[in-house]
Design a protein around this nucleic acid. Sequence first.
DNA 1: CTGATCATGTAATTCGTTACATGATTCC
DNA 2: GGAATCATGTAACGAATTACATGATCAG
Lengths: 193, 193
Amino acid sequence: MKLTPPSYLLLGMLRLGVRSGYAIKRSADRSTRNFWPMSLAKVYPELARLEQAGLVTGRDDPQGSRARRSYELTTAGERALVNWLRAPRYAQPQVRDERLLRLFFADALPRDEQIALLRRQRESDEAEVARIREEIIPLTHAAEESGTMFPSVVARLIIEILSSAAKWLEELEAELSADRNSQSHDQHSGAIE
Amino acid sequence: MKLTPPSYLLLGMLRLGVRSGYAIKRSADRSTRNFWPMSLAKVYPELARLEQAGLVTGRDDPQGSRARRSYELTTAGERALVNWLRAPRYAQPQVRDERLLRLFFADALPRDEQIALLRRQRESDEAEVARIREEIIPLTHAAEESGTMFPSVVARLIIEILSSAAKWLEELEAELSADRNSQSHDQHSGAIE
DNA sequence: CTGATCATGTAATTCGTTACATGATTCC
DNA sequence: GGAATCATGTAACGAATTACATGATCAG
């Protein structure tokens, strides 16, 4: 059976003590979503697959009359997780960012709208930094109390990335605003051949 | 007919003077791939769709006895592109990065392997920066000669992002190497609830 | 003469999401 | 009493990729 990054996401969450499919999805939305989004419709079949493979064990664990299924890692599951963590190969990072695509073609806009585009991109980066600082960082600090430091590391790395992008964009805005008089609205033929 | 980011990628490339489907794919691999990857199998049907919608016009343009189809933007196509550039809404950026996912769960590794993980991630970021500097930047400089500056802007923004990530990772490596004696291999219960 | 590149297109498959379906419990 | 949340699962759909299929030209 082939294990994919989503498989390891589930194994990793189980290792951190998250028990139900629903709770894994909730936790993933608050932490791993920025670099590996996952829908609920993917969680349940994948957990079943992992159980079939003997990497996790599930048991019915109802809360009152509300059904719940709790999972935990088996020894084989823990081994699979650690082996993956050690593996040198990884899938090429995939990014799909419509804002950067727009920016790439922004030569078709007049100068003032180019600047507006840069500003909007910067503001969305800044807003995301604020969101992570407010919503995620406090949670990762709580996790650090119990000796789990890497969720915090990743959150801070993402803040660093978004902040440096925002700062760079701000500088460019300033530059372009300064020479607002110079050329804009190019006349084609600038492809990357 | 619904236009998606891939549609605008094609329109944008055509506006920059790239003519055939094959050439668009080649150019996209050298420029937009980092923030919007696209396969050749997507290019041809999408060009046909855009032609049907009257946003581009295609004509047979064989090179010797080798077939080729050349496209260019119509007025409606140019208008659609610019309207999209102006639109304030954008699809949420989607990132899938297996390296960050590993890093997130790295508490399961002993300290020295955590450091190795950080180093590998940093090195891959640095390698990508080098690749962009060598392969992409010279091409964007050529484009700037003909008044197209934003491909260069985006390339430099990506370099900035990757460099700042690499620098941050390097600092963390140094910190962790310094107190190599302190705890590692946590004993669970650190989920982001 | 052979491998890389130019060039176009389709078919099969994969991966993932949204929507559907159902029901209990908790908070206001 | 109604909305939000907890909880699980499946079905339909969509978007994209890889693989398949074909052929010309060019560089070494």
